[in-house]
Nucleic acid binder design. Sequence first.
DNA 1: CTGTTAGCGCTTTCAT
DNA 2: ATGAAAGCGCTAACAG
Lengths: 339, 339
Amino acid sequence: MSPRVTLTDVAAHAGLSTTAVSLILNGKTGTGLSEDAHRRVFASALELGYRPNLMARGLRTEKSATLGFVSDHIASTRYAGPMIRGALHAARERSHTMFITETEGERAEQERAIQALLDRGVDALVIATVTGRAVLPERRPAVPVVLLNGTSPDEPYASVLPDEAEGARQAAEHLITLGHRRVHLLGMPPQLYDHPLITPQVKRRIEGLLSAFRAAGVDVVPIPYKREAWDAETGFETASRALRDAAPVGAVVALNDAIAAGAYEAFRSAGLEIPQDVSVVSFDDDGIVSFLRPRLSTVALPYEAMGRRSVELALEGAAPGEYLEAMELRVRESARPVA
Amino acid sequence: MSPRVTLTDVAAHAGLSTTAVSLILNGKTGTGLSEDAHRRVFASALELGYRPNLMARGLRTEKSATLGFVSDHIASTRYAGPMIRGALHAARERSHTMFITETEGERAEQERAIQALLDRGVDALVIATVTGRAVLPERRPAVPVVLLNGTSPDEPYASVLPDEAEGARQAAEHLITLGHRRVHLLGMPPQLYDHPLITPQVKRRIEGLLSAFRAAGVDVVPIPYKREAWDAETGFETASRALRDAAPVGAVVALNDAIAAGAYEAFRSAGLEIPQDVSVVSFDDDGIVSFLRPRLSTVALPYEAMGRRSVELALEGAAPGEYLEAMELRVRESARPVA
DNA sequence: CTGTTAGCGCTTTCAT
DNA sequence: ATGAAAGCGCTAACAG
């Protein structure tokens, strides 16, 4: 409708030059502009409803107050949501606006997305993954890039990751403190390396568990998965196998919540009560298993905090390296002291 | 790193003016520029890796190839995901990039978000809601706006909605075709108007059901909810009440999937088999109840298609009015012919 | 067939 | 204490 109000309009209305108005509106200090000039400018801007044209400003300053969030998946998983929400909040607090794109994990699509964002002058890029495996851009963009929930094997990028080692330590510590001296690990990979499920994060989770238990002299019984999936079915199967081949089972660590859910089933079918007969501790705090009773004690993935952190780092152009976000054990009712 | 390649660079390299290059690169026709000029320009652009600066272009053309998606919730619900995905796809197909913001349904926050997006020159806005109740902008923005999954009571906006009336008709038709002559409606509102749960969409769902059943001479038994929530608990309670106060119960329509899930429980506790003893049809096709057995026959909400449609309409500046997206009955195993 | 010029709205030297 | 002028990269009248 009404043609946009520009700096020139405000200047005319305030009886000053655009220079003066720009200086004042941007809070530039040390420009001996009079008190009165300030007053007039603010009044005019307010009265006319002036809003700076950010594209024009960006053209001049090379800053767009905009950033790009490139994610492999956003709709198809419940993990993306919290990361995006955290990122969105951090961006908003810094008066930035966020472009979001979804790449389905395809390299070509990601390149297109990054290019499209760069063409629009984003100030920074966060490349997020829900799978834990980041796809790196072919050429390093000219703006800061941070990897969210994914690592860069060789090339140095800033990457935000959950502190799996410390989270694992807490899970182990919990069972140790409760007096358990023998613990089954449900969903262990048959071998630790070069396996599709084993992202660097997962490796740290497992190694953290192992080293904490070892340090405490706790007996660890790995129950590897057969199917390559960390789902409820695997949980059911590994728990059943533990009961059959490695009894007695007094405490288990499920490598994620879905496995824990399956294990619950298996233990129940076997007539065992949780936590009276067997203690369960798990990872992720995945909302989807909130229906479990007794409620699951699990180490939460800090997705929202990670999302937030990623844009903070991106906007301040943080140095390459790993930025770990704390994982926290949420103690509920699925584990208790050994009888 | 390398300073950005501009139009001027390409022009110099090709030995032409920026005008010629601009014309050629934008595929402007009818500008008798020589074949040779075309060749040289494309070659130069390619060789130098030229990418147009979209902010500069936008400053000139008033088009940014950008749009804003303003949603009340994105992380906290599983409905937002598909809408966003659909919108993202439509935007990408049209070489547009999408800003996403989350407002928590707060008017002030939404105003801020809209203003921020307008400041960045978005070409259009889609205002999405997962609650079904759109918050309208205080002043109508200067760019096209479409409401996604929400209506505008008074002011005329383009709004994309599920075709609830037709979806309801399909659900009713299904039971009618199976020979049911008496159907219980689980989760009916005590009165149809001025009730918190009753968005215009829901009203159409209910009225669609009622009119289809009435037309077929089917006996409808409404079982209103007590607690104001369409959740599993309400499903359990209404189904139990139907059994107790309005037996026999041979077929029910649950007003959404959560209610259906609760009803499953109630029927089972009462020793009834689905679908042998009672047929169940429902609405939403909410992934979260995919665990139900027998699998639920339900009328799917077309969220992804709606998301897609919303940006198509926004980008073409569609006229105010309602744009309905088809709902589809997904026939599975929860209903069968009357004995 | 091709080039000159102006200008989008803003910031930023540099003068005064 | 304030303003003139240049210029960010692009497009579009208008001339030749």
